[in-house]
Amino acid sequence: MITPMIFLSLVSLYIGFGAEHIQQVSTRVASELIDNNQYIESVLGKEQIIGHEE
């Protein structure tokens, strides 16, 4: 019963002390989310975007 708590506490300690890794992840996610063209491009391909901008 205590094992999963220790496991999760270790993970949250890692998030706290290894914050630079998590910060890397979240910055990259944020840059992908802010610019929604990236998502659209990877789903629909490039041509659709160009057609939309015209």
Partner: peptide
């Protein structure tokens, strides 16, 4: 809705899922 804010949101989401489960 700035890049720093969204990054904070994602980080909070990561932290919150682990901590709230715990």
């Amino acid at each position: 809705f700035t890049e720093v804010a969204i990054a904070g949101t994602i980080f909070y989401l990561i932290h919150d899922i682990i901590v709230k489960t715990n």
